[in-house]
């Protein structure tokens, strides 16, 4: 199964609408989980997943009970002003846990959960495939391969990032960085279960700027382009490749 994870229903509506032979259930009576097929590939869609805590728990649960071969995290994110514009698409190269700071624990780095790597590399092949699909299918959308920094908040002011920021330097990088709130948890779950993952999100706003209804609506309009590319990628995977895991 390929699992698609989103914050809210809007994030996953496109994929849900494309599924055939759908079945629906609610995990823990809270989290809608729809399964079906897309291009003969079994696909699961779950939403209502906010924060890394929840994403880690739910994704882990789904992986345990289903043979998940790839997790695709979709939705919205925030970027730094400048290189990645609002409306552009960010595809994850690696994911950092921006709220983790256990430096007092021996041998731990900033952002590192002890026993885990400092950052989680997303699946290279899925990343390339996704990039390629974007270039082919979603021609109006600009896509960037980025580092995702996952926090438990929307960043409404720059000072929210003081712990991990020095003059706009984050984990050794100054550009191609976006911020979201659930990639980190998904990457942890995938690391434990050795399942590849990739995040593909639209930039909703810049950090330090408030989210607006207008902005949100504009993003929704772009969801179909994002959806086309992601489904094209799923189609490629189901047609060509035997997914063998990391």
């Amino acid at each position: 199964m390929i699992l698609i994870v989103g914050n809210n229903h809007d994030d996953v509506l496109y994929y849900e609408s494309k599924l055939r032979n759908k079945t629906e259930e609610k995990l823990y009576k809270r989290f809608p989980f729809v399964t079906g097929t897309l291009f003969s590939q079994k696909v699961g869609v779950v939403y209502g997943i906010y924060t890394n805590y929840v994403s880690s728990m739910i994704v882990s649960e789904i992986i345990k009970n289903n043979h998940v071969v790839l997790v695709i995290n979709v939705g919205r994110c925030q970027s730094l002003q400048g290189d990645i514009k609002v409306g552009d698409v960010a595809i994850s190269r690696q994911v950092y846990l921006g709220e983790v700071s256990l430096l007092d624990v021996e041998n731990s780095l900033l952002g590192q959960v002890p026993g885990f790597p400092q950052y989680h590399l997303c699946d290279h092949y899925a990343l390339e495939m996704m990039n390629d699909c974007f270039n082919r299918v979603a021609s109006k959308q600009f896509s960037h391969v980025c580092s995702f920094i996952s926090l438990e908040r929307y960043i409404n002011k720059d000072s929210d990032l003081d712990d991990i920021n020095l003059n706009n330097m984050f984990f050794g990088q100054t550009k191609n960085i976006v911020f979201d709130n659930n990639s980190g948890g998904i990457s942890l779950a995938c690391t434990i279960h050795d399942v590849p993952m990739v995040s593909v999100k639209i930039v909703e706003s810049y950090i330090g700027e408030p989210r607006t209804l207008n902005g949100y609506v504009n993003i929704l309009k772009k969801y179909s382009e994002l959806g086309k590319a992601v489904t094209a990628c799923i189609g490629e995977i189901s047609r060509n490749e035997v997914i063998m895991g990391k």
């Binding site: 430096l103 780095l109 900033l110 400092q118 020095l166 330097m169 984990f171 050794g172």
Partner: peptide, 17 residues
């Protein structure tokens, strides 16, 4: 990186050193 103290280490991590 682990051979520096945590305060300096945090800043080195931000710079990716």
């Amino acid at each position: 990186r682990l051979n520096v103290n945590k305060d300096l280490g945090r800043l080195f991590d931000i710079y990716g050193l």
